[in-house]
Amino acid sequence: MDDQVTPALAQSSAARAFEDLRGEVSLLRRAIEGLTAERRDQPDYGPTLEALAASNDELRAWARKVSERPALQLTPQQIGEQIEAAASRFRRLDRQELCAEHAQLASAIAEVRAISRTALTDNEQVRRVKIVGGTCFLAALILGLLLAQIAAL
């Protein structure tokens, strides 16, 4: 009897093992199909990555150009010296302009003084003419009165 039970038991165990194996293979197949479907459904990042790489190259080239600029190679002390040189140049130009304006102002003041002296001289001449005229008028009046007195005698 043991012989009959053993083959049946062995057959049922083998059948169950094959069923289990079939289930696992089926599960693996579905998992692989799911991965394939997921892979098909994923977006293609290739163009985006290429655009980012191109942008990165452009940025690298721009940074290289900027780093070659003379202003970025200057030290704070050199920048200060350049600012001081420019400031002294502008102060010198301002000083020259101020001197020129001062000379023009002095010339204008001299003209105004000359005009005022002329006006004072003119006023002085008018005053002198009035004094001389008044004196002559008084002298003529006195002379006329004297002559009238002499003629009346």
Rank of each mutant, 00 (worst) to 15 (best):
T48H: 15
T75V: 01
H102Y: 12
E68F: 00
Q96E: 15
G80Y: 00
R60I: 06
E101P: 01
R60Y: 03
T48L: 13
A61E: 10
P7E: 10
H102E: 11
R22A: 13
L98T: 04
L72I: 01
W62F: 11
Q78F: 01
A85C: 01
I79M: 11
A10Q: 13
I79V: 13
L72P: 00
F18I: 07
R22E: 10
R39Y: 07
V25C: 02
S12C: 09
S26W: 00
L59M: 10
W62T: 15
L21V: 03
R29Y: 05
A71T: 01
E50D: 14
R40I: 11
D20G: 13
D94L: 15
R89E: 13
S12P: 01
S13D: 15
Q82F: 10
A87W: 10
R16L: 15
A54F: 05
L28M: 07
R39H: 07
R40V: 11
A61Y: 02
P70Y: 14
A37V: 01
Q42C: 04
I32N: 06
R40T: 13
A54D: 13
R60S: 14
I79Y: 06
V66D: 13
G80K: 09
E19I: 01
G80F: 00
D41V: 01
A17W: 05
Y45Q: 05
D57L: 08
W62D: 15
P43I: 01
R29C: 00
G80S: 12
R92Q: 15
T6M: 08
C99W: 12
R92D: 15
Q11R: 07
E24D: 08
Q78I: 00
R39G: 11
D44M: 01
E58Q: 11
A53P: 00
Q11K: 05
R89A: 14
D20F: 03
R16H: 08
G46K: 08
A61T: 09
E68S: 10
E38C: 07
R64E: 12
N56S: 14
D20E: 10
Q42K: 05
A10H: 03
S13T: 11
F18P: 02
I79N: 03
A17S: 07
K65G: 02
E97A: 14
E84L: 05
I83P: 01
R95A: 13
S55V: 05
E38D: 13
S67K: 15
D94I: 08
Q78S: 02
A31D: 13
S13H: 10
L27T: 14
L49I: 04
K65A: 12
P47N: 03
S55H: 06
F90A: 14
A15K: 04
R91G: 04
A51H: 02
F90G: 05
E97H: 10
P43N: 02
T48E: 12
R64M: 02
N56I: 03
L93E: 14
R22W: 06
G80L: 04
S13K: 12
K65W: 04
K65T: 09
A53N: 05
G46I: 06
A15M: 03
D41Q: 10
A17F: 06
S55A: 15
E81W: 04
A61P: 00
R30S: 14
E19Q: 11
A86F: 07
R64Y: 08
E68A: 14
L52M: 08
L49D: 03
V25Q: 04
F90Q: 12
G80D: 06
G46V: 11
P7C: 02
E84G: 00
V66S: 07
G80M: 01
I83T: 04
A54K: 02
S67G: 08
E101K: 11
P47G: 02
